[in-house]
Amino acid sequence: MREGDRKRGGGAPRRKGRVLVVLRSMWHRADGAYALVVIALWLLVSLVSAVWTPHPLIESDGRNAWARPSASYPLGTDGAGHDLLSWLMRGSLTELEVVALVVLCTAACGLLGVWASIGYKSGAGRGSRTWMVCVDTLIAVPTVIVAMVVSVPLGASIAVIVVACAFAYSLSIVRVTRPVAQLAATSQYVEAARSYGVGEARIFFTHIVPAVAPTMAVQLSLSAGTAILAESGLTYLGIGIPAGVPSWGRSLSDCAKLITVYPLTVIWPGVIITAVVVALNLLGDALRDCADPVVNADLRRTMEGGSR
């Protein structure tokens, strides 16, 4: 028996092998392939733009304002002479930040909310019922209002976007995953684990969380897409990404303000945003199907390891 055979779960291949199988399954689907390509491109551009863009982001001369697309300025320039392509490239890094923060915060708050919703005595306690009532009331609070209120102390900042999106989506996660979480929490395997002395925290992370993981993955990818859309809207309203920081929303809103002058500059930011949001939405669905050993036969075969 090789050392590698004794990996977690008792399957022959290691975790890296499983990830590759999931990726390959996603690649074979049309929506998965699109999502993977677009997101890979996005990551690539972000990384590149961190160190290099075709033109520096802040040009000191404004003489080149609103130039048409040309060899040196493939997408033209904006009202201050900045190269639109460079701003869009660098903006992709900002979007990456936004999405990463939103997904992390939403996941953390969502898990906290799920834990509160199953509560002590697995969802039958008064505490968890009260919490669900709170969730149902809070979920009606419009995200725009949350963003506005939060922007008062924080000003225009990425935190406004993160807080507003995390608030909305973590509540949505709690509501949507409640049936599954309840089922897991009241299941006999959890009762069995408790009887063997498994601690509550361990039970939560090893039994309950895997049960809600597929639904959460879809919700998190939706929240990622919404984060980008929210960023564009909130930046336009002045309470999102601060001025001077490149982002797709900023490109979009800058172009919007002067649409009468040169309408076509508005096309590219919008196309990019739409393409990436579509990719994120599709990613969630594809991930949910391909990462589930019950649904994905290839994965199941790989995990069971065959004979040794």
């Binding site: 299941s187 069995a192 684990a193």
Partner: peptide, 28 residues
């Protein structure tokens, strides 16, 4: 103490492989 429940399909986590379920009390 150890307990064997009535319905094994309910008392074993359907998402866990058998080895992991059997080892769970030890891991705990």
């Amino acid at each position: 103490s150890g307990i064997v429940f009535q319905d094994p399909y309910a008392s074993l986590d359907p998402r866990w492989r058998i080895r992991r379920s059997v080892a769970e009390p030890l891991r705990a």
